[in-house]
Computed example of a mutant assay.
Amino acid sequence: MTSTLPAQRKDSQLYIGLMSGTSVDGVDGVLARLAPGQPPQVLASSSLPMPSELRQELLALNVAGEDELARGALAANSLARLYAQAVTALLRDAGVEARDVAAIGAHGQTVRHRPDSGYTIQLNAPALLAELSGIDVVADFRSRDVAAGGQGAPLVPPFHAAVFGAPQGRAVLNLGGIANVTLLEPGQPPRGFDTGPANVFLDGWCQRHLGTPYDADGRWAATGQVVAPLLEQLIASEPWFALPPPKSTGRDLFNMQWLDARLDAYDGSRPAPQDVQATLQRLTARTVANAIDAAAAGTREVFVCGGGARNAGLMRELAYCLQRPVRATDALGVPAQEVEALAFAWLAQAFMAGSPAGLPAVTGASGPRILGALYPA
């Protein structure tokens, strides 16, 4: 496509990436310099909590309800205003003017992900964000891949390959609400897919029983015991786990109703809530390990990003189930909480350069596609 950007933006190496993930706990943002042939240089980062009312509405919009269209549009506007606050903080902290930034990559909030039915929905108001920030916005990254027959997810493996590639077998694991893994093997193109639930159950069960947003460091899970028969039932009862890649998932499948149905069907005695939490923590680690062992048994080390990297209990479970070194991506020079936002800055740069960023081997699309749509300031 032909760009109508001012000259200073055409030549700018500054990009902003914004991410609000399946956990719906906040908005992460980075302002980075993305110079060809150079590692990304993060100039500023920002993390804003999701306002409680907006969080509850976004979660509610994951399931069918009354007046969804209007509610979804209003929630998208509220999210764009929160994005704009993050942008303002990034510009201020980096000492950068809006006119010096080439583009914002804004993923939006996924409320439906049904590539099997040919659609995916990320609530966003990129035109409003462009208006509020004065910066061009690239959004809607998934739909072109889905239109080409792909899953539209995961989107980050090419970024992981560019930033975290190594001469030995390495996996990059993102632990948001859903877990996804990128497999980086010497001499092979990157592969990646979702592995199943990460924090979606851990947070939801904790919120239900403790009234806290998450299980800090897995401390509550540590007071319980893994219920092995329940763990086996959770895995065996869900055919999705056994599907080969490419595959992706979300709250459409893995939600609290999914968990409640399996707890009701469990033929053992009802476990204590803390034992369920311990079992759910093991479920995340075990399904990740199963997926990596099946797809890339030669993987020698695993680097973790996303909110789950801050959960010491979950990281210990991963090391136990994987039987490999497990570390946060901080060890590779990119803080775990910044990785996904940085990935969307990178995807925005790819769009502005007219470079296909989709990987058919990852998503199953019929070919590489330029991902995103431009909303000029």
Rank of each mutant, 00 (worst) to 15 (best):
P245K: 07
E238L: 02
L234V: 05
I235G: 01
F241N: 01
D267I: 12
W240F: 14
I235V: 14
D267C: 11
W258S: 07
L243M: 14
A236R: 04
F241D: 00
W240E: 01
W258T: 07
L243Y: 10
S248C: 08
F254M: 04
D252N: 06
A236Q: 09
D267M: 13
G250V: 06
A261W: 04
L243V: 09
L263P: 09
A265D: 13
D260K: 06
A265H: 08
S248H: 07
I235A: 03
L234M: 05
L263M: 14
R262Q: 08
F241R: 00
S237N: 01
P239G: 13
W240A: 03
P246H: 07
L263Q: 09
D264K: 15
D267K: 13
D252W: 04
D252R: 03
A265M: 08
G250D: 04
T249C: 11
L253Q: 14
W258Q: 06
D260Q: 15
P239T: 13
P246M: 06
F254K: 02
Q257D: 15
N255K: 12
G250L: 02
S248G: 10
F254D: 04
D264A: 15
F241S: 00
S248R: 06
L253W: 11
P239F: 14
Y266K: 12
Y266D: 14
W258M: 07
L243I: 01
K247N: 12
W258E: 10
A242Y: 01
W258A: 05
G250Y: 03
L263A: 10
A242I: 00
W240C: 02
Q257A: 15
M256L: 15
S248L: 09
A236C: 02
D264Q: 15
K247V: 12
D260N: 13
G250R: 04
Y266R: 13
F254E: 05
E238K: 02
I235P: 01
L259Q: 03
A236P: 00
I235E: 01
L243T: 13
P244K: 13
Y266C: 14
A261T: 13
P244M: 08
S248M: 09
T249L: 11
A261N: 14
L263G: 09
T249K: 12
M256K: 10
Y266H: 15
E238Y: 04
I235T: 03
D260L: 08
A242V: 00
A236M: 03
L259W: 02
R251G: 12
A242R: 08
M256C: 10
P239R: 12
D267S: 15
A242T: 04
M256Y: 09
P244N: 09
D260C: 05
A261M: 11
R251S: 10
A261D: 15
A236W: 00
R251D: 08
S248D: 08
T249H: 10
D264T: 15
K247C: 13
L234C: 05
R262D: 02
A265G: 12
F241G: 00
D252G: 05
K247I: 12
S248P: 10
R251L: 14
N255V: 14
I235S: 01
R262S: 06
Q257V: 14
